[in-house]
Design a binder for these strands. Structure first.
Lengths: 338, 338
DNA sequence: CACTCTCCATCACGAACGCTTATGACCTAC
DNA sequence: GTAGGTCATAAGCGTTCGTGATGGAGAGTG
């Protein structure tokens, strides 16, 4: 199980071609063929079906292991390199689409910052391999529970903020009347000041309701179970995967929360605009109301009791340089939670 | 970062000797020297100080990574091998010293079972590498919270049981009067029936306090904070590491919970006997009262609100063979918790 | 059906690598 | 000072690894 062989195997499996993998890796097709043969001989089982080139069941299994192993290998390299090199002056921040919390924006240094939006599950890898100094990931969790991050990469997580969840609707949607606040503000402020000062861990109650018309008799929010049969935006890279909603609701994978329009991209504002245009519902953090999307209505999610939690990731034990400063500003308490 | 080089590096660091590592690995001392030199050249930094042979700070860091990487490499191998081979007939169970819960004992098949007690942090590795089919780990956690397992190995955890915690004392200890029940039963039953039928997740309330008189209120149990200055048994392989108690109490590492006698071993009954003999306090699951150690008194822990949680580990997605049967008997609910 | 194109497997060869033996430099013990 | 231990270095040599060339197997085309 030489990592070299694993690397070529992963390439071959991904490209479904020995020749293409050879081109990508700078090898000869012959070498790639020998690599795969060596790996299959080492493990004593076929890994790839030829013609067409596709992984066997065992090969599929190996792909999962190999991805994790190679990532951790790179992460170890990066960690050691970071250990020796002097701390960088610049700060690169990898953020999931909905994770760029106002609290973080307020704590960023004035210069030398690069922000990169990535799909949610690529952020830990970016932090681990050193492609980014810090990462911001978000997700659904019970109040004050840590996020269940995939343990593909060794990173340390610190809580940043928790806030309520809302469902984005077009203004003419039948359920829009349950919104507690008015439509989105006209000014498209980049950093909404609401909840920017809320301490992490505090469950942001849906306070400061604008008008009291919807408070008592009509439901103050939506129940996710009532939206199982609705049409949702399928935005695996920008919002929450629909399977996540199904898991939260307890539905089996593939049942309920049907997809309407599918959005392949990582822009949270685009996603909100699509919801506002009636192409499907979207579950968003409450601060999405500050995105300034005209025509969007946000209805708080009343049940199940979930929060949108944001966590800050860094590699290794303690960050250094500007990353350390940012961590210090965001998290005065070092070991948060259990 | 060839795993071969990592393996030799780990051996050299552990044995603090190039020559000894060469003997252990079946290499020449020269080869080991070249391995280390190659690794240092690859990473561009010294890893070992010579004379005496000791890791540099960067080398210490690499050791952590290397241990995890090599373990995962072995785990991947074992998983693939398991994937191809027919399911085994026998069942090997690796259990932490306090994790062999009566519920599990009751569910074991009649024949073909091997139980192996290991230190707590070696159990996941044993399961991942295939040295054991299933693992049982225990730990302190908030009620219904999953254990925080070190992610050194890719394993799947399922809850088995939760029960209260007790502090083991000798009968003549000043705090022994706070015990709720009498001393250990005379009969040394192998499988205590108490709490064997208690459902998982039920917090064992400290009920039926014995007598009053010590302080203002007749405390029905002990508060961990009152025992910070007591002398504790230091049994890193059998009980809970003292650092774990310090972390629970919020004390900095190394402060409080001083060690009295140190026990190097994995026998829970021995540990209880040491506590009964007055060599120090020990924090144990409530079912330890059934170990049948004469002279031992067990006082429930009233605060902080913690439970002794037991989880079952298995490698891969789904177990096969007798392991699958055991998992099925223990965990009717497949996906437990969040 | 022949032809061609592309794909992957196999063979042979040169270069590079990896391990061993042998030797040197250095330290500690007596 | 010598002996015994350590680790580093050099030379030798077998093995491995990658390349280039060749061959068989399908797929598409006329």
């Amino acid at each position: 199980m030489d990592p070299h062989l694993l690397r070529t195997y992963v390439s071959v499996a991904r490209l479904a071609s020995f020749s293409a993998a050879a081109r990508e890796l700078g090898y000869t097709q012959s070498a790639v063929s020998q690599h795969v043969a060596a790996l299959e001989a080492d493990l004593g089982m076929p890994l790839l079906g030829r013609r067409p080139v596709a992984p066997t069941p065992a090969g599929e299994r190996l792909l999962e292991h190999a991805a994790s192993l190679l990532l951790r290998l790179d992460a170890a390299r990066a960690d050691l390199a970071r250990f020796a090199a002097p701390p960088r002056e610049t700060l690169t921040l990898a953020a999931a689409p909905l994770a760029l919390h106002p609290r973080v924006l307020a704590a960023l240094p004035a210069t030398g910052v690069t922000v990169r939006t990535l799909p949610r599950d690529e952020v830990p890898a970016a932090v681990a391999t050193g492609a980014a100094d810090l990462g911001l990931v978000d997700g659904l969790a019970a109040p004050s529970d840590p996020l269940r991050l995939p343990d593909v990469a060794p990173v340390t997580a610190r809580p940043v903020a928790e806030e309520g969840l809302v469902v984005a609707l077009p203004a003419n949607h039948p359920l829009a009347s349950r919104a507690t606040s008015a439509t989105a503000p006209a000014t498209s402020a980049t950093a909404p000041a609401t909840s920017a000062t809320a301490p992490a861990g505090a469950t942001t109650a849906p306070a400061t309701s604008a008008d009291a018309g919807t408070l008592t008799a009509p439901a103050p929010g939506l129940v996710l179970a009532d939206l199982v049969d609705a049409r949702w935006l399928d935005a695996p890279d920008a919002g929450f995967p629909l399977d996540r909603l199904r898991a939260v609701h307890g539905a089996p994978a593939g049942r309920g929360f049907r997809a309407a329009l599918r959005y392949e991209g990582t822009d949270a504002r685009t996603l909100t605009a699509l919801a506002a245009a009636g192409h499907g519902l979207a579950l968003l953090p409450a601060s999405a109301a500050g995105l300034g999307v005209p025509g969007a209505v946000f209805v708080p999610l009343a049940a199940p009791r979930l929060v949108h939690r944001t966590e800050l990731l860094h590699a290794g034990r303690e960050p250094a340089g500007p990353a350390a400063e940012l961590v210090r500003r965001l998290g005065p308490r070092t070991a948060a939670g259990r």
